[in-house]
Amino acid sequence: MAQGTTGATTRSGKQRGTPVIKDVARLAGVSVPTVSRYLNGTARVSDDKRERIAQAIELLGYKPSFVARALANKVMDSVMMLTSLSGYWATTQVSGGVEHGARDKGFLYGVTSLDGVDADEVNNIVSRVLSANPAGVIVNESDEIAIQAMRQIPKDMPMVLIGGSRGDAPYQVIPSERAGGRQVTEHLLGLGHQSVVHVHRAEGPNNNTRTMGWRDAMAAAGIVATEAYQVGPDLNESVELGRRLAASDTITAIFAGNDETAISLIKGLHEGGRKVPEDISVAGYNDQIFAPLWEPALTSYSQNFVELGQEAFDMLYAQIEAKRAGDEMPTPECRVVEGRLVVRDSTAAPRAKA
């Protein structure tokens, strides 16, 4: 490719401030449709032409028009996520991971909340999302409404499900929820506690929940898993439960299904005259930023929700690329994003009885 001035010029020889696709084609010695195919990934372009086009783009400082590409593709360079529990910390972390992946590929990213949507409204919500012509859709499963929304996505639309039971969708990314719940419970039992009380919020309709992991560990230890309490998002409810549990002489360990519930329980236990971990060990889940700063520092299971979102976008992008190139779709798969137990000061061996 001939090297020279880096600015695009008009026929009159005047310098033009913003290069357009015709300038790239002229400098690279290819047609405008070839440049368009290179930018959109809609068909294969030879390695020689790809290199020349890439050099021309860099030399000119060309920035493709998002709208023009969308018109050429008949879909937007964008992805949408449908999710319930949109205000939850875990959901925002997952969303951030999807957004980072989308940004790296030059895609716009939007979130549509299903919070407060009833079954009759789901179809309208999904129709509005699809009317924006996204290149693909991610569904973050947390309840039956999200599952219903997923079922409305056309079969030819690239789609990835985050969460759910393994096999709920051809392309799926799931966190190690059940394995994590089991690991936390095993940690407490391994310290010498004879049983573990579980406190949790409502969980999604799937077989990969933290509560199931708690039951798995208890069953493996030969303990009947009967002491489970469901609480709502109002943390005062968990504080009150902590006060009630403090009155028990037999409880020595609690596994809370998330960190907010854990610290609320600790507050209630303290108000009930019990010390953590001297009297009762408490472990949380999610390992939020405040977990190591709490008093005592909170033992918690660290689940990489950002990676979960990034993996979901990568899986979606592979489908988008295959569809645009006319290739076969990637092999369906279910990826598991593993977490890890972080042991801190809130859990310890039970106090020896006098």
Score class of each variant (00 low, 15 high):
residue 253 A to S: 07
residue 81 M to E: 02
residue 79 V to G: 03
residue 229 Y to L: 10
residue 138 I to Y: 07
residue 5 T to W: 11
residue 226 T to C: 02
residue 140 N to D: 12
residue 169 A to C: 12
residue 213 G to Y: 01
residue 300 S to Q: 03
residue 336 V to T: 14
residue 153 I to D: 07
residue 302 S to W: 04
residue 99 E to G: 07
residue 71 L to W: 08
residue 196 V to K: 05
residue 129 V to G: 06
residue 333 E to H: 03
residue 67 V to N: 09
residue 85 L to M: 13
residue 231 V to G: 02
residue 265 L to T: 00
residue 130 L to W: 10
residue 70 A to F: 07
residue 208 N to F: 04
residue 101 G to Q: 09
residue 25 A to L: 11
residue 50 R to G: 12
residue 163 G to S: 12
residue 232 G to S: 14
residue 114 L to Q: 06
residue 295 E to I: 11
residue 157 M to H: 09
residue 315 M to D: 00
residue 6 T to R: 15
residue 128 R to T: 13
residue 298 L to P: 00
residue 188 L to V: 04
residue 27 L to A: 08
residue 269 L to R: 03
residue 174 I to W: 02
residue 195 S to A: 15
residue 340 R to D: 13
residue 257 G to Y: 07
residue 270 H to R: 15
residue 120 D to P: 02
residue 206 N to K: 09
residue 160 V to F: 13
residue 2 A to F: 11
residue 183 Q to N: 12
residue 193 H to Q: 06
residue 303 Q to E: 10
residue 134 P to L: 10
residue 225 A to V: 05
residue 288 Q to S: 13
residue 205 P to S: 10
residue 177 E to D: 15
residue 49 K to R: 15
residue 225 A to W: 01
residue 5 T to H: 14
residue 85 L to P: 00
residue 253 A to M: 07
residue 22 K to Q: 15
residue 261 T to E: 04
residue 204 G to M: 13
residue 258 N to K: 11
residue 6 T to I: 11
residue 96 G to N: 13
residue 295 E to V: 13
residue 207 N to G: 09
residue 137 V to C: 06
residue 309 G to C: 02
residue 212 M to V: 01
residue 129 V to P: 04
residue 164 G to E: 11
residue 216 D to I: 05
residue 136 G to P: 09
residue 353 K to C: 02
residue 17 G to F: 11
residue 127 S to L: 08
residue 147 I to M: 14
